[in-house]
């Protein structure tokens, strides 16, 4: 996983609620067996509309997505995270996230930032007023900053540490292989196996 410490870039306002993962990456894109090339499928259906915000040249190169509430609901497809990252996004800001999407993001180093709905609204308005405004997502300080404004956000210490260090979860768990073995030795004998 790529480490995430702090990132400054331009942002794009997505004024929609309930942006489900089927919209972020439609199912037809899930047939790929590789981890790359998903940027072309990001919001594929919505991008066919010339008026869709990602098609607005003023937001070209933006790396922070500022969405309406309930971003990433629905399907567990991690491809949604890959598509956002490969398109160039490093962080997504919303008032609420789907639980699985949020979890998947933290496994991949895409920072999901929860801010109050009115703060998200103010940030979207600031971006619309000046699309060149720079937004900083500072994980170390747990803070988002833009144009003289700032807003703190919460993230648990463990996830923050993992993201700051870019640590692989599997490697961390394998350090506790003895605990896993001990647990396995005590499992109930009636539990099923697939063999």
């Amino acid at each position: 996983m790529d480490a995430f410490t702090t990132h400054t870039g331009r942002a794009v306002p997505l004024r929609r609620s309930n942006v489900d993962t089927d919209q972020i990456i439609p199912a037809v894109w899930l047939k790929q067996v590789s981890r790359t090339g998903f940027e072309k499928g990001l919001f594929a259906a919505w991008r066919e509309d010339p008026a869709f915000v990602l098609n607005d040249p003023v937001y070209e190169g933006a790396s922070i997505l500022v969405s309406g509430p309930d971003f990433g609901t629905g399907s567990s497809r991690e491809h949604a995270v890959w598509a956002l990252q490969q398109y160039g996004f490093r962080a997504v800001i919303a008032a609420r996230f789907g639980d699985i999407f949020r979890n998947n993001s933290t496994k991949m180093g895409l920072l999901p930032i929860v801010l109050p709905a009115e703060t998200v609204e103010a940030l979207q308005a600031a971006i619309e007023a000046d699309p060149a405004i720079e937004v900083t997502a500072d994980l170390a300080a747990r803070e988002v900053r833009w144009g003289g404004e700032s807003a703190g956000f919460e993230i648990d210490d463990y996830t923050r540490w993992r993201l700051l260090e870019g640590l692989d979860d599997i490697g961390l768990t394998l350090r506790h292989a003895d605990d896993v073995q001990a647990y396995e030795n005590g499992r109930q004998r009636w539990l099923p196996t697939t063999v």
């Binding site: 567990s76 991690e78 699985i100 979890n103 998947n104 496994k107 599997i170 961390l172 768990t173 292989a177």
Partner: peptide, 19 residues
């Protein structure tokens, strides 16, 4: 019972656990 993403699928395959 709950849904997981592909990184967690790999984690469960490798360790039979999830944090």
């Amino acid at each position: 019972a709950f849904g997981i993403g592909t990184s967690e699928v790999e984690h469960v395959l490798a360790t039979q656990t999830l944090p």
